[in-house]
Amino acid sequence: MKKHKINTQDKKGVPLRTIQSSSWCPGCPDYMILESSRRAILSLIQQGYKKENFAMSTGVGCHGKIFDYLNISGVYGLHGRAIPTAMGIKLGNPNLNVLAFAGDGDTYSEGMAHFIHACRFNPDITLIVFDNQSFSLTTGQATPTSQLGYKSKAEPLGEFNQPLNPIHLALSAGASFVGRCNARDEIHTQKIIERAIQHEGFSFIEIIQDCVVFNLEVNNRDKRMYQLLDKNRSMKQALKYAQEFNYNNENSKIPLGIFYQKHRNSLNEEWPILHKLAKSKKTWGDLKK
């Protein structure tokens, strides 16, 4: 069997960053999402969270490379399967803080069933979707959030399906925390990721980002973005804000921040045995059977 020399060392001077050099395109906002995530976890560690208790899963796509750069435990899963993998990690040890990193093609195409059911199951995990509105690692085909008219090698006549609105969908499916960030705003993104991890239940953050190589049409939308007030709002109000931006390249405003947050019992709270493990900070292996 292969013996890994597990390297727990961070890159010199950069906590939580592995020694692996990065291979995202120059100028890709994925670097910024990595940085926001790294800072959010670092900040939580400073607030008392244990570094060893962080774990992640990723799908496959440009976003997935974060697995090689973020120095926390995890499973580099299959395309579309970051969510069930993360749910499994959480069920396997209810004391872990689990992040699922996924892409828009990953989550809304191949893995759509998992996305809807995670909203319903309400596991205490945080889903962070890198949404650049294209399948970039496979050279730019349309995803379910690509705007109408988007032309690619696979859609030479232009995309004629309406993009779906993941924020609206997550709210309808019962997600207990729904947020949106701009990849380029690292300070805001870090704050929302921290809040999402602290939320007990399924937290969904959609990060809007440019792709600097494919789907250039939807780049540079910062001017249209604005931050929602940080306050509790009803489902009705949240849905209203969710509909402000329909993912087509129109001139509408793009709201950012937490659309909706309401506590509902998570899997950890519903299942007696998970509740017991979480409360006593024990693992399955600690149980006497």
């Binding site: 993998t85 499994g88 399955w284 059977k289």
Partner: peptide
């Protein structure tokens, strides 16, 4: 028996959840 059965949304979810849970140390 201090164990848990979980019925996910399908078999693809089941196998990926099982791998995730096994990764964290559950049998």
């Amino acid at each position: 028996n201090k164990m848990m059965t979980f019925q996910p949304e399908g078999e693809i979810a089941a196998v990926n959840m099982a791998l995730g849970a096994s990764f964290s140390g559950a049998r």
